[in-house]
């Protein structure tokens, strides 16, 4: 596994349509663009519907006109929807920031050890960690609830901090391990010659090089915890006082309210905005996280 998969993907290939093409080549190029555009329309359709129907007001939304672009912008649905989502989204931000930062710190320490300071049995332990990425969380949910109760955090938002930190260990460790594996061992040797130990080499050599790795892991943990529904619904039981973005959204759009299209679309869009912004501005790091979690390229 190389760490620059993303560089590979985003590298600029010699773009063939700058060359003069023969008839057959031109046909192939047109075919490619048409196919790409069809896929583009399909990919964008669900978010397009969300966006256009969020600016048609509360009563101006009808299902049969959902594809049409609004004649004028009406943000009437935004106010009441935001009023409901404000508190749950604030709560989500509160726990997501904590869990992401703690996860990144743990991941960087583990990744450093598994990449550069292997001990006897470390690769078996690492594999045992990785299996934790694949398990269905339902298989630990009942004991986890009991643990939370025992630890005195049952009924608080910290249940989600604990869940995302602990079950984030495998993926964060993996991403950092691959990141550090690409840093040459000579740097460690140089540090040792200067009399530095494992901890000082980490602090003075690896940490300063780790910023991109931290961005990747922070984004990864932020996105997955923000979008998580399973832990949220299991561990909070859907309690309103612990509502987070996804559970609040599910409550808004849930059965019985499905006729309020304008509100539902607006609420879904508002909940998606934070992760979409991260994706738009830091997409490269997001992609790195996605591929980093794939083990082999």
């Amino acid at each position: 596994m190389t760490t620059d998969l993303v560089d590979r993907i985003t590298q600029h290939k010699n773009v063939s349509n700058s060359r003069k093409l023969t008839g057959k080549g031109q046909f192939a190029l047109v075919f490619r663009y048409i196919s790409l555009s069809i896929l583009f329309v399909i990919a964008i359709l669900p978010i397009y519907i969300m966006v256009v129907n969020s600016v048609k007001g509360i009563t101006g939304v009808s299902q049969s006109a959902a594809f049409t672009i609004p004649t004028h912008l009406n943000f009437a649905a935004w106010g009441p929807t935001w009023a409901i989502l404000k508190v749950p989204m604030g709560r989500t931000l509160f726990f997501v920031v904590q869990s992401s930062i703690i996860s990144a710190i743990i991941g960087s320490i583990n990744g450093y050890v598994f990449a550069k300071w292997r001990f006897k049995g470390s690769s078996a332990i690492f594999t045992a960690f990785l299996f934790g990425m694949f398990i269905p969380y339902q298989a630990i949910m009942i004991p986890l609830t009991q643990f939370n109760h025992w630890a005195g955090i049952g009924g608080t938002i910290y249940v989600l901090v604990v869940a995302h930190v602990i079950y984030g260990i495998p993926i964060c460790t993996l991403i950092f391990r691959n990141y550090y594996a690409a840093i040459p061992n000579e740097l460690i040797e140089a540090g040792r010659v200067d009399g530095a130990g494992m901890v000082r080499i980490f602090r003075t050599i690896f940490l300063p090089l780790s910023i991109p790795g931290f961005v990747v892991v922070l984004i990864w943990q932020f996105t997955s915890a923000w979008n998580d529904f399973l832990f949220a619904i299991f561990l909070t039981g859907g309690a309103p006082k612990l509502a987070v973005a996804t559970t609040a959204l599910n409550f808004i759009t849930g059965s019985g309210n499905q006729v309020y299209y304008g509100n539902n679309m607006t609420a879904s869009l508002i909940v998606s905005i934070p992760t979409l912004l991260v994706y738009m501005f830091l997409g490269r790091y997001f992609l790195r996280g996605l591929l980093g979690g794939a083990l082999k390229g």
């Binding site: 519907i49 299209y261 679309m265």
Partner: peptide, 21 residues
């Protein structure tokens, strides 16, 4: 980036659009 953006959005949010589609 358009093909990949669905990965950044929660299923619960996208469910609203898909339910209508």
């Amino acid at each position: 980036s358009i093909y990949l953006y669905p990965m950044a959005i929660s299923f619960i949010a996208m469910g609203t659009s898909w339910r209508w589609l």
